[in-house]
């Protein structure tokens, strides 16, 4: 099944994401991520820069953001596709892919992403631990989520390596990764 990605950007990007998902997102550095739950659905939040976030979320993000009347855009980019690979494939990929300084690929930790290239194809490699259960409530609006709470839910978590790339490259990239 296709992953649903929401890209949030704008002056109020940080404020909006914090008000929806808790202050913990403010502690993320660019290309770091965290896992939480929004309206009962798992939500993986990747910070791209100070005010830009990419959120993997199966619900309708616009319905959460519209009431906030803020200066942000919420988009689902038609040209951006995502798919998951296995940990074994990540190992092979890190041997072949390249990154531009100052990014690093070796030892990519969990909850971390990196812009990378495989031959001429550009992608974002995102290692994170998605929350599988839809019923858990790690975060409720008005209550802050915490890494401690996240770790308590580890039993229902699933390691995930997501690849984001252009729709024009997605099939070619999948094939290349499968053949690594």
């Amino acid at each position: 099944m296709d992953q649903i990605l929401w890209d949030i950007a704008g002056t109020d990007g940080l404020i909006v994401v914090q008000s929806l998902l808790g202050k913990s997102v403010g502690y993320l550095a660019p290309f770091q991520s965290l896992e939480t739950v929004l309206a009962g659905k798992p939500c993986s939040v990747l910070r791209l820069c100070d005010r830009n976030f990419r959120i993997r979320y199966a619900g309708d993000m616009t319905q959460h953001i519209s009431p906030l009347k803020s200066s942000v855009s919420v988009r689902q980019y038609e040209w951006l596709k995502a798919f998951s690979i296995s940990s074994e494939q990540l190992q092979s990929l890190t041997k072949r892919a390249t990154v531009r300084l100052p990014h690093r690929l070796v030892g990519l930790p969990n909850h971390q992403a990196v812009p990378a290239q495989l031959d001429t194809i550009s992608m974002v490699i995102w290692r994170h631990t998605s929350l599988e259960s839809r019923s858990q409530r790690v975060y409720e609006r008005g209550r802050e989520s915490s890494s401690e709470k996240d770790s308590e839910k580890a039993s229902s978590e699933k390691r995930s390596v997501d690849i984001h790339t252009s729709w024009t490259d997605v099939e070619r990239l999948k094939e290349k990764i499968n053949n690594l």
Binding site: Y27, A29, P30, Q32, R104, G107, L108, P109
Partner: peptide
């Protein structure tokens, strides 16, 4: 150093 890999200035600040 400007910031550290897999860490970033936000994490360093906090």
């Amino acid at each position: 150093p400007n910031s550290f890999s897999y860490q970033g200035d936000q994490a360093e600040y906090w």
